[in-house]
């Protein structure tokens, strides 16, 4: 069983559309996981049935029992997150600022502060239109701990892939280089980087690849909208060569990306505009590489 993570550093490069197309090609051989829990979109193309839905609890938030509070102020003194304030002569916790460290509850002399488990979202296991299963999630509004939810989605996908004896786990990662990305990379066998030939695309590709290198995961790269700036496309190719990243393909700008999306379809189900062949080539290359790992 091989784990493939698709990331991009920069948002809006086509990462999710490409992952969905790859999921279509992988079909029944893969379990699919959407680890971009902060702005999860992949389900819009996969017709999930949300068959199993579970609440996800992670971390805690402090709450003060007003009746028993003696207003000594110790809690406010120790809080490093400015989460406790005095409103109308009473101490209150701002749940958005509270990081759930539990320090206030520990120092409260009258034990009037307790920690509540925090519901940070939901995760789902769905059957999807490609005849396989998908694990996905929805992070609660303004929730912390997206890294933990990513880890949960990944672990559930791993377990499913084992049970169902699947060859691949295909993961849509999140943008950036922070905690959710780190979470989605851990344990991966291969990373697909999706970039675009713009100053931002290159800048973000380099940063996210530095992160991938720390995990010693082999990587391939897809250059999307490659005709937008041929000079920048060329510099990306040179960078890939220098860093020993496999070039998995260059796709020219194609309106089919948004057109198929508006119909809830992957690119592979849309009329052939040339992109589908390119994506098929990328998938074949990826499979070849995975066979040698």
């Amino acid at each position: 069983m091989k784990e493939i993570v698709v990331i991009s550093g920069k948002g809006g490069t086509g990462k999710t559309s490409i992952t969905a197309a790859l999921a279509f090609l992988a079909g029944k051989d893969a379990v699919v996981a959407d680890c971009d829990v902060d702005a999860a979109d992949m389900h819009l193309l996969m017709q999930p049935d949300f068959a199993r839905s579970e609440d996800f609890y992670s971390g805690e938030v402090a709450e003060i029992l007003q009746d028993e509070c003696t207003q000594c102020g110790k809690c406010m003194e120790v809080c490093r997150f400015d989460a406790i304030s005095i409103i109308d002569e009473q101490y209150w916790v701002d749940p958005i600022s509270c990081e759930g460290c539990g320090y206030c509850a520990r120092v409260c002399p009258t034990e009037t502060i307790f920690n509540k488990d925090l519901n940070v979202g939901k995760w789902f296991i769905s059957s999807i239109k490609t005849g396989t299963k998908m694990v996905h999630a929805r992070l609660g509004i303004g929730a912390d701990n997206s890294g933990k939810l990513v880890a949960k989605v990944k672990n559930e996908a791993k377990q499913l892939a084992k049970e169902l004896d699947k060859e691949y786990i295909l993961i849509d990662g999140s943008p950036g280089i922070g905690c959710p990305v780190v979470s989605s990379l851990s344990g991966a066998d291969f990373v697909i980087l999706v970039t675009e030939p713009s100053v931002s695309g290159i800048h973000d590709l380099k940063r996210v690849y530095e992160l991938v290198k720390k995990f010693h995961i082999p990587a391939g790269c897809i250059i999307n909208k490659s005709d937008l700036n041929s000079q920048k496309s060329q510099s990306i190719l040179e960078y890939l060569k220098e860093k020993d990243i496999v070039h998995l393909g260059s796709y020219t700008y194609d309106e089919a990306f948004t057109k198929s999306m508006t119909q809830g379809l992957t690119l592979m189900e849309w009329e052939d505009t040339g992109s589908s062949d390119k994506i098929r080539e990328s998938w074949d290359k990826t499979k070849q590489i995975l066979n040698t790992l």
């Binding site: 902060d38 702005a39 958005i96 992070l139 303004g142 997206s146 922070g178």
Partner: peptide, 10 residues
């Protein structure tokens, strides 16, 4: 601001 809806955006 950063993308998304979680803690960094808040």
């Amino acid at each position: 601001a950063p993308p998304g809806t979680s803690c960094p955006v808040i």
